[in-house]
Design a binder for these strands. Structure first.
Lengths: 337, 337
DNA sequence: CTGAAAGCGCTAACAT
DNA sequence: ATGTTAGCGCTTTCAG
């Protein structure tokens, strides 16, 4: 059996309170007493029981991170960043997977499993804007992503439309005029696809380039394979284009591979720009020009925001929407000029 | 303030114990009483306090998973599998990152943060065999990976040498004779590189193919970029080969890309086989033949083993070494014939 | 500066 | 079938 405060107190011949004072670095302990207590702690190999501490203090020292799947590159890198940021704040991270399934997402929000944590960082995929009432929960919650806007909780996300517009403008500035997109979701207004499409359209319009529906590649999923498939369709359709804006890096990599397979040179014949700045995009051949949506910043800001909410308890200020800075990472697949 | 057992008991006009019985599905509760309690629970929105339950029961319902980095594909997919398996067992998973750093790995083993969990699934990278005494801890621990063998704790891992031998034999059976390897670690005997190299050498020897040192590509890190670099060196060296066995999929993908860039056809001119069976290898072009080392099985077995240990407490049977079945996944980069 | 004692919310042994 | 009660190990008033 592990040693308890009581054991230490007994051994050091002081009260339990004094031991507690020593452990929590409270002042008002005579150096001499402190030393005696400390040696008892060492002798017994005492380690405070965090569960008991949690019960008493109402804090667990853990946060939950809920994502669709950690094995998807974007979420893997997000999880890495969140875990690292949480650790710096002295918190451990408990990872939940929802599979991007609306039912599981809603269930998670009221799961007793969350009781083990002080708060939740939540990246839904299956929920939509009509579900936003479900996000009014009685524990600290920070929302990520672009499935839901206007919920009464803190929300940290990226500037999808602006970033997509900038990506498109970047291609235009480098002299491209016929820019295909890959990853469109028909009829979607919010959500990554909808918002990025909007940015693309804005950029075209401002540049006076007519929108050509034949250059739109539609695909629900955004895995590498989908990018390849969509690009095959575009090529087969006979459409001509000199650049591709893929709505994420997986799509871009799949599309790029098919372009090369078809004998088209990237970037000479077709420039390719992605979105996400996954680590591996620096090492592909050619390396991928992409939008860094500020993933690291989002992760650390989400943790900071959550930590603040946890500290505040109730009676806190209004929830905020915070947007990350993005930047275009220029690499080989789409040089600036 | 959240409702407690007491509040529910008061509202339902029963004792606290009866409420507890209802919640824990104990028998000996009259249906009528049960219904009354249940409606009080619903009315108050009562949710059991897991922290209190933990303190009382000595179980937290959480396990820890420690990996180098969740953003590395292999560990991302491992984490996905572990989290999923743990969830099936009613456990949540707390993810810790060590960065593959020996000091952090050792520190983690004695971290108070583990107090929040019932046990640990640990995949070290920086530790070596001499550190195995550190794995004798007083909580349930399941070791993964191939950095440490013979420690006094359960160990679930893959058949590295056998699988590597089988991969090499597969290439030989398909008619290849000059098989390059990518990912060698000079002088390593255990660890993924050492064990896989051993399997490669065994296969060559049994087939009567002389070992050619010029076909060995050495690289400490196993990212895609390293595979590309090593392959460039091999090609530049003038060495000739008709197949490549890469010690993991990242290396294989990097190498394959460089081969194609150099105008060599995969698999016609050079066959490529990897190791890991990452999800994305099914979707590369060409798709990658690779060794599935049994990652899913390892994850679920690790969780099962840990659950068993947790249930047993002390006075338990000897720790076991369990090895996953592997299989060769035949895809385009190295057809069977 | 230190000690005594009251709980945090729950479970389980023991009573009825 | 249901009620009473003693802690799990800690923090934290409140006294001394």
């Amino acid at each position: 059996m592990a040693a308890t405060l009581r054991d230490v107190a007994q051994m050091a011949e002081v009260s339990i309170k004094t031991v507690s004072n020593v452990i929590n670095d409270h002042p008002h302990v005579r150096p001499e007493t402190r030393a005696r207590v400390q040696s008892a702690i060492d002798a017994l190999g005492y380690r405070p029981n965090l569960t008991a501490r949690s019960l008493r203090s109402g804090r667990t020292g853990a946060i939950a991170l809920a994502v669709p799947e950690v094995s998807l590159s974007y979420f893997a890198e997000l999880a890495d960043a969140v875990i690292t940021a949480a650790e710096k704040a002295g918190l451990v991270t408990l990872v939940e997977q929802t599979g991007g399934d609306r039912q599981r997402e809603l269930a998670l929000l009221t799961s007793p499993r969350l009781q083990m944590t002080d708060g939740l960082i939540f990246s839904p995929l299956g929920m939509d804007n009509d579900d936003r009432a479900h996000l009014e929960v009685d524990y600290p919650l920070v929302l990520l992503g672009e499935r839901v806007f206007g919920a009464r909780c803190d929300h940290v996300t990226m500037r999808n439309t602006e970033a997509a517009k900038a990506a498109t403008e970047y291609l235009i500035a480098s002299g491209r005029r016929r820019i295909a997109v890959v990853g469109h979701h028909e009829g979607e207004e919010i959500g990554s696809a909808g918002l990025r499409m909007k940015g693309y359209l804005q950029a075209l319009e401002e540049a006076g380039i007519p929108f050509d529906r034949r250059l739109v590649g539609t695909t629900g999923l955004w895995h590498r394979w989908n990018g390849a498939m969509v690009m095959r369709e575009l090529l087969a359709s006979g459409a001509t284009f000199d650049a591709v804006f893929a709505f994420n890096d997986n799509l871009a990599l799949g599309a790029m591979r098919v372009l090369q397979e078809a004998g088209l040179r990237v970037p000479q014949d077709v420039a390719v720009i992605g979105f996400d700045n996954l680590e591996e995009t620096a090492y592909t051949i050619p390396s991928l020009t992409t939008v860094d949506p500020g993933r690291e910043w989002i992760a650390s800001t989400a943790v900071e925001t959550l930590v603040k909410r946890i500290a505040e308890g109730a009676g806190a200020p209004e929830p905020e929407l915070t947007l990350a800075q993005f930047r275009i990472v220029e690499r080989e697949s789409a040089p600036r000029r």
